[in-house]
């Protein structure tokens, strides 16, 4: 059988660097949606090596698990399996990009109603929220780094919205800079 080459939806579109911010691909090997069956949460937690509470990211055997809703998590990393939970492979359903740089928070602040201050979104915290008109998942993976997930079909809209905001933030920085 032909050996097909998997390409992320961002192929040929990223990375983009504007001002102090870089937008780059961060697609994991696999994305697995996990929802423990009734009264099976502790069994699932044992099998996976952890299960995130609201707003949490936890390291699990297969990779990182993000909380995405009541009783639901997405595992980013290797494919995950579990007999005590509903498990759906969503690897091809999402686009994951990373926004990195000193002004990354200023860029996001133009697009999301989420409170991005350290007190509300600390490092290693995650939130389901809006980005422009899209529902998205925002995870802070470093002091100046955020991972953003939207449905794969919205990849170009995501890049368009972020690029616009990055340009505007860079223009602001030039205006208020020295001279």
């Amino acid at each position: 059988m032909a050996d097909l080459i998997a390409r992320p939806a961002t192929h040929g579109l990223l990375p983009i660097e504007i001002g102090s911010v870089v937008l780059e691909d961060a697609q994991p090997e696999a994305i697995t949606w996990i929802a423990p069956y009734n009264r099976k949460k502790s069994a699932v937690t044992r099998t996976l090596g952890g299960f995130p509470g609201p707003g949490q990211v936890v390291e699990v055997k297969a990779g990182r698990a993000l909380s995405v809703g009541p009783g639901q998590a997405l595992i980013l990393g290797a494919p995950a399996a579990c007999d005590d939970a509903a498990v759906v492979d969503q690897s091809d359903g999402w686009t994951v990009v990373a926004l990195d740089g000193a002004a990354a928070r200023d860029v996001l602040a133009r697009l999301t109603p989420l409170d991005l201050r350290d007190s509300a979104l600390s490092e290693n915290a995650t939130a389901r929220t809006l980005l422009g008109h899209m529902t998205a998942s925002i995870t802070r993976t470093g002091p100046y780094r955020y991972e953003l997930m939207v449905f794969r079909s919205m990849t170009q809209t995501l890049i368009h919205e972020l690029t616009r905001a990055m340009k505007h933030v860079a223009a602001r920085a030039r205006l208020s800079g020295p001279g």
């Binding site: 009541p70 109603p113 989420l114 389901r128 929220t129 809006l130």
Partner: peptide
């Protein structure tokens, strides 16, 4: 009840 305090737009 799951995510905490959020903006009306959500």
């Amino acid at each position: 009840p799951h995510c905490g305090e959020r903006d009306l737009r959500e």
